[in-house]
């Protein structure tokens, strides 16, 4: 599986993502700087976590208007898989690739802790290696992860099965509506999520629960 990671000024989880992808796919991902105007041929493009542009204006707002994002929107339209984690999720909502918005955490504080996720839809390219209803551990670290969508959007994403992961067992760290932790676009080829599956992929991390997300994608590409 060929992968690429987009890097912005202020990205800080890009190396975690490179490491996870190289370990799991066996191939080194391409690194793409935000000012580039074309993306390499890849099965999966990742927008990693961090604080692109210092979260100026709104988290992800400036990055979503950078040159490479135009190209990413084109690739997503063509069906290329796109994964945004944390700041990447914020960037994808700001770019209009995903529904809803991510607001300041309800508790106003930055949260850095492990939470539990329930895979509520395992029929997506990103979640097929999990069991439906499977609850798994995942690290989180963010200040603006409070997912919001208006009533109409919420109904449509729930009805379409676009909600893939929910915070489970009372571990919602940010006040997200309906405990939503990860959503896809209508077509199902773009996923955004606040927690960091790339940080729980080998025993050194204290667990491998996040690995199944990447293995789901690998199974799709095979």
């Amino acid at each position: 599986m060929k992968t690429a990671v987009i890097v912005f000024p202020g990205s800080n989880r890009d190396r975690d993502m490179f490491h996870a992808l190289e370990l799991i796919t066996g191939t080194r991902p391409a690194s793409v700087w935000h000012t580039e105007t074309s993306l390499p041929d890849a099965d999966l493009v990742i927008v990693p976590g961090g604080f692109s542009y210092g979260d100026y204006l709104r988290s992800g707002a400036i990055a979503a208007r950078s040159p490479i994002l135009k190209e990413l929107v084109k690739k997503a339209d063509q069906g290329v898989k796109v994964l945004g984690v944390c700041n990447g999720f914020q960037i994808l909502t700001e770019a209009g690739l995903l529904p809803g918005a991510l607001m300041r955490n309800a508790g106003l504080k930055f949260v850095c802790r492990e939470i539990e996720l329930e895979t509520v839809n395992n029929a997506t390219s990103f979640s097929n290696a999990y069991q439906k209803g499977q609850v798994w551990r995942c690290p989180t670290a963010h200040h603006d992860g409070n997912y919001f969508a208006d009533a109409e959007t919420l109904k449509s994403i729930e009805d379409n099965g676009q909600v893939v992961f929910r915070y489970a067992n009372g571990t919602n760290p940010n006040g997200s509506i309906n405990n939503i932790a990860g959503v896809t676009n209508a077509k199902g080829n773009v996923l955004g999520m606040m927690p960091h599956p790339e940080n729980l992929i080998e025993d050194l991390n204290g667990g491998t629960d996040g690995r199944l997300l990447f293995e789901s994608l690998l199974a799709q590409a095979a």
């Binding site: 204006l57 707002a61 208007r65 700001e94 809803g100 918005a101 607001m103 919001f148």
Partner: peptide, 9 residues
């Protein structure tokens, strides 16, 4: 519409 506001919220 394009930058200053996020019209979702």
């Amino acid at each position: 519409e394009k930058l200053l506001a996020n019209t979702v919220i």
